[in-house]
């Protein structure tokens, strides 16, 4: 088990370094653009050069990257080009918003996908299965920003049930917090559930046709016991793997949803960074999202190992 964790950690570190360099290169691939966007189109060449020298942008990219990486590791995310404010503390303020949104959405996605997927598998090739499969195809084609718009149109404008956006910390006003979070979370969660329904269905069909399920039935197990005790756990291994990837997608999609619902999270910070060409902000927030996604994958890698007793004992 320890060997497994260590090798996963090593892979994680490598991935993080390569991923951060990809981000860094992606942001800096066009030289000089930072200065120009920070100072405006009609900035003089002298002003541009001064800005670049001031922020160390005139040095080779490798040197800039090394410096940025080193500072990032010590928790120094630099200062915003735009207003000189420290990026690090701002990130910390924004992270809980995005985490709450993503986790809330992920819970919704699973609450939809697990029962529907399992039920479809139990009714394999019958009407309910076909209906659920069609529903999954339909949901999978819905753009989440469109769903968000429709939700606002119905729940806010028509029924006046929920606020159109904004953010109140849970600790300040839990009810308001949930009211503001429900539509963003639904927009992300419902769309994410499409893939998860399919995965759960496929995994359960596979498991339900296996010999050990027949054994359980041969012992006189009720259908509920067959599904809950024997099938679900075995279907979880493939499911959790895909769900983790889906959580990554979901976490990346917060950018759009946070923008729509005016949530001050990391996602909208990415947009701030882009619109202002504020590279420290953009890099730091994109890296944070990537880091969270990678950490989730790491955890899942290790947890999936635990779900399957065959893997656990092999590594003991």
């Amino acid at each position: 088990m320890r060997g497994l964790i260590l090798s996963r950690l090593a892979a994680f570190a490598l991935t993080l370094i390569v991923a951060s360099s990809i981000l860094f290169v992606a942001v800096n691939v066009v030289p000089g653009s930072a200065a120009r966007s920070a100072l405006g189109i009609d900035a003089t060449p002298q002003a541009l050069a001064r800005f670049e020298a001031q922020h160390g942008l005139d040095r080779p990219l490798v040197v800039q990257y090394a410096e940025w990486l080193g500072k990032t590791f010590t928790g120094d995310f630099g200062k915003s080009f735009q207003n000189g404010v420290d990026v690090g503390p701002e990130l910390l303020r924004r992270l809980p918003v995005t985490l709450e949104l993503a986790i809330f959405a992920f819970i919704i996605a699973n609450l939809i996908a697990l029962p529907l997927g399992a039920f479809a598998a139990m009714r394999h090739q019958r009407a309910a299965d076909k209906g659920i499969s069609l529903l999954a195809s339909l949901l999978g084609a819905v753009p989440n920003f469109w769903l968000a718009t429709l939700l606002v149109m119905v729940l806010t404008l028509h029924f006046r049930l929920l606020p159109p956006g904004g953010y109140t910390p849970f600790t300040v006003n839990p009810v308001m917090n949930l009211k503001q979070m429900i539509m963003p979370a639904l927009s992300l969660g419902i769309v994410s559930s499409a893939l998860l329904i399919r995965i759960m269905r496929t995994a359960m069909i596979e498991v339900l046709s296996s010999d050990y399920i027949r054994t359980a039935r041969a012992k006189g197990a009720k259908e509920g016991v067959v599904v809950m005790r024997h099938a679900i756990r075995n279907a979880m291994t493939p499911y959790v793997n895909v769900a983790a990837v889906e959580f990554g997608f979901l976490f990346g999609s917060v950018v759009v949803i946070e923008d729509i619902f005016l949530l001050p999270g990391i996602g909208s910070f990415v947009l701030v960074g882009i619109i202002n060409r504020d590279y420290p902000v953009l890099l730091a927030s994109a890296l944070t999202i990537t880091l969270v996604v990678l950490i989730i994958n790491l955890i899942v890698d290790i947890v999936v190992g635990r779900l399957d007793p065959r893997r656990v004992t092999r590594h003991q």
Binding site: T15, A26, V27, F249, G252, V255, V270, A286, T290
Partner: peptide, 14 residues
């Protein structure tokens, strides 16, 4: 392992 839309957005920025 990057979230796709994030990578796209960052690339668009530069």
């Amino acid at each position: 392992s990057f979230p796709a839309i994030l990578l796209a957005i960052v690339l668009m920025a530069s």
